[in-house]
Amino acid sequence: MGINQLSTLEHILITTKVEKVMNWSRATSVWPVTFGLACCAIEMMAAGASRFDFDRFGSGIFRATPRQADLMIIAGTVTYKMAPVIKTLYDQMPEPKWVIAMGSCATAGGPFDSYHTIQGVDKIIPVDVFIPGCPPRPESLIYGFMKLQDKIMTSSLADRYKDIFEEVG
């Protein structure tokens, strides 16, 4: 049986790239950490509840431990005392992992230009998507999450290790 010959397997098989399948499976099953810091967490909970239903995007399973999670939604004000905790949680998440900075506090400190607030969570951990708003509505969070899905779909396995390869030489 030649390889160019049509067979019954054509009807039940899809040929694609491994990378694309991996990206598709990752983008449609992003599990966030159950982690809220301030009033943005209320909107995040609303996004997970039935009216907005985060589950439609495969992201409704809020995990109680960072070791089972792929996504960290920084929903709220990041204080100086909380910063080491966030860093620890981020380090405990397995690769691949993504971060959404939700609301103006997590994005840039918000109204708290003060001694206790970190001016944007990107000072301590890398952020993939920034969502403005004070607080952003669940639609904004869902839109930001769809942007993250686009980013995951365009990512490549080589990209993630490119920096390390360059570092080692």
């Binding site: 100086y80 080491p84 708290f112 003060s114 607030t117 001016q119």
Partner: peptide, 21 residues
């Protein structure tokens, strides 16, 4: 001590973060 009157109320969050450990 942040509630003293000579303590700056703004701007300290912008300093570099170095973790405790």
């Amino acid at each position: 001590y942040p509630l003293r009157k000579d303590y700056p109320t703004v701007g300290w969050g912008q300093r570099d973060i170095s973790f405790r450990e």
